[in-house]
């Protein structure tokens, strides 16, 4: 039976892993190459690498960093941050990425997803959506959660699926960094309305939150950063806990 996936995420700024709260107040969380290798050793099912400064700063050193991480990684590796063209995706894949995560560019130019999925296959293209609930509506944000858009989570995710995204990485900005649990209601609604897998992101604080996101939230994968980086939850313990609670894990 297909297992639910535990996905540590490395948010990278200036070559270091960082983590903030509600997308702000970044603090250092260590060397991404070491963290990546350690997670793969401890039983992580995938690794996500997001360059959170990519849209503003130069990206050449990041390709080298991604390559260095990929070299030591025997699990799937998704790279994201500022990707907006076939050439950008090519660079990621040439440096050992297995999938790419497209965020702002998918909102600004949705047809990019058609182009990329035809070129690289749906399985390679993850659309990352940052959204925030305002008066009962899930507003999609771009540029690392700084700029609100006209798009709404559910219709936008559906469009992404139709255009050829193989997976949706949904981050609830309201939950991100709070450690108060995932946005399970929105996730369940999203999962029910789509045919492609959903990676849940934002809000993981304890092991029960993961059990909840896979059952009530109907997510296919659970992503988290700080709780893994700062050793609050060991992935092996989390897997044991989930297994004991009836969630199928590797």
């Amino acid at each position: 039976m297909l297992a639910k996936r535990i996905v540590p995420c490395l948010d990278i700024k200036d070559g270091r892993t960082v983590k903030g709260i509600n997308f702000e107040n970044l603090r250092d969380a260590g060397d991404p190459v070491e963290l990546g290798a350690a997670y793969s050793e401890k039983g992580a099912d995938e690794l996500v690498f997001l360059d959170i400064t990519a849209t503003h700063e130069k990206r050449k050193t990041l390709a080298a960093l991604a390559r260095n991480i990929a070299r030591h990684l025997n699990i799937p590796f998704t790279v994201g941050g500022g990707i907006g063209s076939i050439k950008d995706v090519d660079v990621c894949l040439m440096n050992g990425a297995d999938k790419v995560s497209i965020n702002s560019a998918a909102v600004r130019n949705p047809a990019l997803i058609d182009e990329l999925s035809l070129q690289f296959g749906n399985q390679c293209i993850v659309t990352a959506i940052d959204a925030k609930e305002v008066n009962g509506e899930w507003i999609v944000y771009v540029s690392g959660g700084r700029i609100p858009t006209e798009r709404r989570l559910f219709e936008f995710a559906k469009e992404m699926q139709e255009r050829g995204a193989g997976e949706i990485l949904f981050t609830s900005m309201d939950h991100d960094g709070t450690k108060a649990g995932f946005a399970v209601d929105a996730l369940a609604k999203l999962s029910d309305s789509l045919d492609i897998p959903i990676i849940a992101s934002g809000g993981a604080g304890n092991m029960a939150h993961f059990a909840e996101v896979f059952t009530k939230g109907k997510a296919d994968a659970g992503l988290a950063a700080s709780i893994f980086h700062f050793g609050e939850i060991e992935i092996s313990d989390l897997k044991g806990y989930l297994g004991d609670n009836g969630v199928v894990v590797r």
Partner: peptide, 15 residues
């Protein structure tokens, strides 16, 4: 062809 709501692609770790 999903028989009981399986997601496609089949993505992840299976036996």
């Amino acid at each position: 062809k999903p028989a009981s709501g399986e997601k496609v692609p089949h993505m992840g770790w299976n036996n």
